[in-house]
Design a protein around this nucleic acid. Structure first.
Lengths: 128, 128
DNA sequence: TTCAATAATAGTAATTGTTATTATTATAAA
DNA sequence: TTTATAATAATAACAATTACTATTATTGAA
């Protein structure tokens, strides 16, 4: 695999993200992995998160405030950010991949994909 | 207007963004406004960009790399980011607002809106 | 198995994008 | 005008992320 060596740390990060239903930030990943590898470096976490995103093993979610969030769920799904509590939730909804065709119609370039974020109030914050 | 005073700098920023077809970053806005107001502060640019976004006078585009971009075009439209040159382009396409209804079906919270970014190769980068 | 080549690491410093602070200036309204 | 206060320029502070470097871990071959 062209200059990529195994590392326990990277594996632990990937494992964690594939298990949790949260959408942790780099710092939250760092905090968690430290339980297993107490002297892992925050830089290592960032480097591997970027690597894993590049490889398509995890997804990066750009959040309005603060840093990026990460998701190890590779199945097609969509995210919702609550305007009140700022939590990131998964949405159970049918695919909207057809919007890529809509965008591509009449566009001289090539649409390879898209990312959509939904905003509003989450169930918990609805009831005040 | 409830504690908001006029300022030339803010007006210049708003004016610039409503005129240009680019989607400049805070720094690019800063560089441009400095031609008219040579000693405007970068902090002033950031503060006013945030104010204008809050008021709905401009739109914030979260870009993959580097900082946010801004757009003074208030008509409903969509953005495309080229994977190669990283430029932000406007897409001429029909509305996809219906995706909010799709997302809302079966969701216990409230979908108030969404933002979609399209990715791929722009016309210029297509021909290598 | 060693062993060499090199990717990955921990620890730390540096960078970047952005926000906060503060003394001064501009605006608005009486 | 005068007064109240929002906005400013300049700068310091901040948070998220990346770069640097000497050391360690992994891999593939002798």
């Amino acid at each position: 695999m062209a200059g990529l060596k195994y590392s326990r740390q990277r594996e632990a990060i990937k494992e964690y993200l594939s298990m949790t239903k949260d959408h942790p930030t780099a710092d939250m990943v760092y905090m968690h992995i430290r339980q297993e590898y107490p002297n892992i470096s925050l830089g290592t976490v960032y480097r591997n998160l970027n690597l894993l995103v590049e490889q398509g093993d995890i997804i990066r979610i750009k959040h309005k405030d603060g840093g990026d969030h990460f998701d190890g769920n590779l199945e097609e799904h969509y995210h919702f950010i609550c305007k009140n509590c700022n939590n990131v939730l998964d949405l159970e909804m049918e695919s909207i991949e057809h919007i890529n065709k809509i965008a591509g119609a009449g566009f001289k370039g090539k649409i390879e994909g898209s990312s959509t974020l939904f905003y509003g109030l989450c169930p918990d914050c609805m009831g005040q």
